[in-house]
Design a protein around this nucleic acid. Structure first.
Lengths: 146, 146
DNA sequence: TATTGTTATACTCTATAACTATA
DNA sequence: TATAGTTATAGAGTATAACAATA
């Protein structure tokens, strides 16, 4: 429980926020390294995954479901489009909006990237059984969902 | 499980990294609001808490135990010192280093702030029993400790 | 009036290189 | 030669205000 440095951080180690942040940073670090070959940051992966599984999704819907701000999505979307991974199509009902669709190349990339993501998860959670991992995710969702 | 937006994020919701980050952000948001009255950001709280519980700790030791970079700690330490919450004293063994100590005011503030931190934790984890909360923290530590 | 996507911009957080004084 | 603390600065991430086109 105590650190190898000899410094007592026991109060912080009792706080959910401290532990959640430390764990998230370690996991994300692994994720970044593992996704480097696909040139996808975590946020790129998340956005592309949601587009992949929700053809025609709009920017606003992406922002709402991933907790992003519209101005910060503009450059990201443009980048994915320029790489030929997604396309913008006119929205069938709302001429202000644009439906986002993964291209064939985008779908191909995401199939590989999602497989890679799953293997990264297994590597980073080697000290958790599959049951514990599922339980951990469920408890985290009880914190942030609603 | 599915979101109220009608957007399918089920793949992301199966990833530990995604859930850990979303939960950490929600917890930290609560923490920031709750600590505003003490004018302490999460990183200020962490640093002050470690100094409080480890009188004479050095900047390097703070960096190692909290995973911070030395240049980013300089302004923070100076700020806490200018607010009269900590003092720098010559290190007894190493004249390059400085021992950091909480002042009476710093100790007083931290007693209140740590009490407040604990109550914020209870608010943010209302949907987890104390047992679940302890189990969650233990599992998170199995990910980031080593 | 409100909303979608956008631009411009500011602010914060994090990271790197290099210096000084001591070890 | 290496380490503690520091400076300066660059880069990434996150935030707000305001606009044109459309609802």
């Amino acid at each position: 429980m105590t650190r190898h440095t000899g410094i007592d951080t026991s109060f912080l180690e009792g706080l959910l926020g401290y532990n959640a942040r430390r764990a998230a940073l370690v996991i994300i670090e692994h994720f970044v390294r593992g996704m480097a070959e696909f040139d996808l940051r975590p946020v790129d992966f998340s956005v592309l995954s949601v587009i992949h599984h929700n053809p025609g999704v709009t920017s606003r819907e992406l922002c709402a479901s991933l907790n992003l701000l519209p101005p910060n999505l503009v450059g990201l979307i443009r980048g994915l489009e320029q790489r030929g991974l997604i396309e913008r199509q006119p929205h069938p009902l709302d001429r202000r909006a644009q439906g986002l669709h993964a291209t064939a190349a985008g779908i191909e990339l995401m199939q590989q990237a999602e497989t890679r993501a799953s293997s990264i998860e297994r590597e980073v959670a080697t000290r958790l059984s599959p049951q514990e991992q599922a339980q951990l995710i469920e408890m985290l969702q009880r914190i942030y969902l609603n």
